[in-house]
């Protein structure tokens, strides 16, 4: 549904995207991961036809995203990363305008979405909070029932409850066979919905991987608090990778070997467990440049 082939655009400051290639298949939820300024939005802007590729091409629904941009966009629901609405309208007026431009009957789905996201669309846009604007944007993106969704950091500004509602919405659309390209800088956001993900850094694709593969690559840090110090000593001599010991607390690094981790821990009295996710930056540091990972 989406193919990007050797897409290149260099800006005057030397940044840009270089030879970006990947494809998104029908019915797939594809994550597009990278830190801020890595080229996610630039890639998406090419898909929407806002920029002309210097090299390479992108197609959406088999239409060239530059030369046939209007046809390509007909099948797309787009949620921009930075939402900037027009002045002097309320949410309903904005949604009416977009619906008219989309040229499809949207009434039913629109009220469904508004009900789901729980906001008052009659509020003037300039009085809306960031989260509320994001909700209006989500309604505009989903209401015309497109085949392809291109979402640039869709959950920014939403509270955790609404993030969950949004993820359910994505999964529901996915069941209907819709295709998604979703950018994010947070791995945990992507891992709940995506099938595959591309990681981009400094404008270049680092890897395109199955999400489970990425998950197994991800190291997780567990802080285990044990009852007594003898157990701590015993744990230290196990085969698990121990990062740090602080009194009764042992910090263990787990990368895929959860089975071993749990079997070992079953031998002790555990008082408390807390887990911290490895940041995205660290994940592809692991992938990209293993020797630089700070220990």
């Amino acid at each position: 549904m989406i193919t990007i082939h050797n897409l290149t655009r260099q800006f005057s400051n030397g940044k840009g995207i270089f030879d970006v290639s990947f494809d998104v298949k029908k019915g797939e939820v594809f994550g597009f991961l990278g830190p801020n300024g890595s080229g996610k939005s630039t890639t998406i802007r090419h898909l929407m036809g806002y920029m002309k590729p210097q090299k390479g091409r992108a197609t959406v629904f088999d239409y060239d995203s530059w030369t046939e941009q209007a046809k390509a966009r007909e099948h797309v629901g787009y949620l921009p990363g930075e939402i900037a609405f027009l002045d002097g309208m309320n949410g309903t007026e904005f949604l009416d305008m977009i619906a008219g431009m989309q040229g499809k009957k949207v009434k039913e789905k629109r009220s469904e979405l508004i009900h789901l996201l729980q906001f008052d669309p009659k509020t003037p846009i300039r009085k809306m909070s960031k989260g509320m604007k994001q909700k209006v944007g989500i309604v505009a993106t989903f209401m015309h029932d497109p085949d392809i969704y291109i979402l640039d950091e869709p959950t920014s500004g939403l509270d955790p409850l609404m993030q969950r509602v949004f993820i359910e919405l994505v999964l529901k659309e996915k069941e209907k066979g819709k295709t998604f390209l979703m950018s994010s800088h947070s791995f945990s956001e992507i891992e709940r919905t995506c099938d595959r993900a591309a990681i981009i850094k400094d404008g270049r694709i680092v890897t395109v991987k199955d999400i489970h593969e990425l998950q197994s690559m991800q190291r997780k840090i567990f802080d285990i608090t044990l009852h007594n110090l003898e157990d701590v000593e015993a744990l230290k001599s196990s085969s698990l990778s121990i990062e740090k010991v602080d009194g009764n607390m042992v910090r263990i690094e787990v990368q895929g070997n959860y089975d071993e981790f749990f079997k070992e821990l079953a031998n002790y009295h555990v008082k408390n467990v807390s887990a911290t996710n490895q940041s995205l930056e660290q994940i592809f540091m692991d992938y990209y440049n293993a020797e630089e990972v700070p220990r």
């Binding site: 209007a70 966009r73 900037a84 609405f85 977009i98 431009m101 040229g103 505009a140």
Partner: peptide, 20 residues
């Protein structure tokens, strides 16, 4: 103004072409 502030992204998110 719409390009500078980014609202043009919304006007160009549908099947309505740039020329239109």
């Amino acid at each position: 103004k719409l390009v500078d502030r980014g609202s043009m992204a919304y006007l160009l998110s549908t099947k309505v072409s740039r020329a239109q």
